[in-house]
Design a protein around this nucleic acid. Structure first.
Lengths: 343, 343
DNA sequence: GAAAGCACCGAAACCCTTTTCGTTTCGTGT
DNA sequence: ACACGAAACGAAAAGGGTTTCGGTGCTTTC
């Protein structure tokens, strides 16, 4: 019996069934279950018991058909693999509250055709809103302009200024990192970062240069671009220490690069943070807490970003203006042992 | 105008609108769009053009209401943060094919109350099936027995043997790891692993001991349990090298522990893989490819697991028996520089 | 020329729930 | 005892799409 049910054999219980068992009309059953006032207490109790007994669950689809709202939101990501998407997704899910709104997750795998497919599917499901999440902070093509639902772009902004985009503030992040290094008494700061085609790399460089400028300092050497890997962090730092043995801080474009920097410093007998301070970006938990010493990093507050996106969609559903343009989320400095010696 | 649309102002286009524009009845419009045969080619063309012009998208909810199938599946996870869930999720999404089936993602945050809430919400959305994903391979309480849809448990099996569960085969993984070490000529193998309360730890130990036994070997020292961290990997390996300086391989319970082991070996001047071979579990990309040398690891094939789960749900929808009990997914050995010297 | 056949189209029912509005029943006041 | 008001309940429509069935107009055949 249980097996049959599990195989999907038993068709779902409808309000009609409940009404029949309770001996009332569907209208009364509906009113009783929804707490409307035009039902006698005894009748209500009978309906509730019948619903309980049949383990009735109202069909949200039929409700949505009537109300015109489905209580669902589509989350369209281009790269689920990437670790940036997850916190955003969690933040959004959080904001929507358990059970009231459900999230359709779609991964387009970075394929535009696929994305259009998914978009169509989501619209046919009559989602109330859309959140589009990218894996890079570079601008991406708009998903479309005349969509019948509000759309918010997160992490990767839309190229169209009419769209609303929420992104981490990487310029502020770069500034924050350098300001922290300076406040630790560092003066000779070098910068190793990743792929120069990434807006994130460029923005952080810009912020860093701004902060250095404001303090009357200059970067030691050129910005070293290559890839977002520990290997590059190790190699670049080795070169750096040879060319500029007097540096007292390495600003790293990501936590991975920073870990590489830490490894090279350790190999060469440079004390961190005594001789050299190291700082990274992303505040990627497994990276920052497992390194020696633990890594100071700039947290982009992705979860907040996801939550904001969800709230914006909500507000738009309630008739508020969605807004437009690119809005940034302030980063957060998390200080650990790689810049400040533990007491 | 575009702004108004984006705010959700323009209500969705219905089949009635298309029919009016095409100058036919809704019935004819429906048949034309769905490729039914009772429509004249010219009429069909007119309808298609009207649909195109209005960018009509059929309302899947209304369809589902009629057919009794929604083309949606609920994916209930207890811990989205964990990196094990993502590949499973991707595998499932993959198997469902873009657009045909959509996935409702729910994160219960490990809370049972919340999980029941989410379950109810999913059932009210009339999902066609459910996939329940845990973050540990330990058995978890069944989500319920008399559900009107097929349910598959992934990674964390259900305690109820009547339910269908798909889990990675950690015993085989332990065996595979040891067999590889032995095939590399290692004889004095030690084992450092994580939290002993995890079934994954125990299962891998069991598999490892089986393989050692089959080869007439014994583990060097006791299994060292503690936590799944690099720090523990470093500390444990240091102790190990002091107590048993003659070991030639460290079997590590996770890639993180293995990285710690590599670091300690390096610190103490032991060559890997020359003096000591190191192997991990999980094949976590960022861990295995960034270490020095790159880390040999056992891949649990999680993506396949997710895909299998989706396929099972599909099959159950087509009337096939869902099955019951715990089924295991064979692991895969990925050889890298930490056990075999690169040529 | 009339009857039969065929291709095509439209009206209406159905899915499930909510809501409006009309009907019934009861109690109370006169 | 009758009338009136209020409370409780039920019939029906709506929401969007699919499908069945019946009907229209055309062509074919004897």
């Amino acid at each position: 019996m249980a097996g049959k049910d599990q195989a999907g054999g038993g068709k779902a219980v409808t309000l009609t069934d409940v009404a029949r068992v309770a001996g009332v009309s569907v209208a009364t059953a509906s009113k009783a279950l929804n707490g409307r006032s035009q039902v006698a207490p005894r009748t209500r109790a009978r309906v509730l018991q019948a619903a309980e007994q049949l383990s009735f669950v109202p069909n949200t689809l039929a409700q949505g058909l009537l109300v015109g709202r489905t209580g669902t939101v589509g989350l369209l990501t281009s790269d689920l693999q990437g670790r940036f998407v997850i916190p955003i997704l969690m933040g959004a899910e959080d904001a929507f509250g358990a059970g009231r709104v459900n999230v359709f997750l779609c991964d387009a795998r970075g394929d535009t055709i696929r994305e259009q497919h998914q978009l169509k599917a989501l619209l046919s499901r009559r989602v109330d809103g859309l959140i589009v999440v990218g894996s890079r902070t570079d601008a991406r093509p708009s998903i479309g302009h005349d969509l019948p639902v509000p759309v918010v772009y997160v992490y990767a902004p839309s190229e169209d200024p009419e769209d609303l985009s929420l992104v981490p503030d990487n310029v502020a992040a770069g500034r924050l990192a350098v300001e922290h290094l300076i406040s630790c008494g560092r003066q000779r700061i070098a910068h190793v970062t990743g792929d120069p085609s990434y807006a994130a790399a460029q923005d952080r460089v810009r912020g860093a240069l701004e902060a250095l400028d404001a303090a009357g300092l200059e970067l030691v050497g050129e910005v070293m671009y290559s890839e977002w890997s520990e290997r590059w962090g190790r190699d670049a730092t080795a070169v750096l220490l040879e060319r500029h043995p007097d540096i007292d801080a390495v600003l790293c474009g990501s936590d991975q690069i920073a870990r590489g920097a830490l490894d090279t410093a350790r190999d060469q007998g440079r004390k961190v943070p005594g001789d050299i301070a190291v700082i990274g970006f992303d505040n990627w938990d497994e990276m920052v807490t497992n390194s020696r010493p633990e890594l100071t990093s700039i947290d982009p507050n992705l979860q907040l970003l996801g939550r904001s996106a969800a709230q914006r969609v909500f507000a738009a559903l309630d008739g508020e203006d969605l807004g437009r343009g690119v809005h940034t989320q302030a980063p957060r400095l998390v200080i650990r042992g790689s810049t400040v010696a533990r007491r």
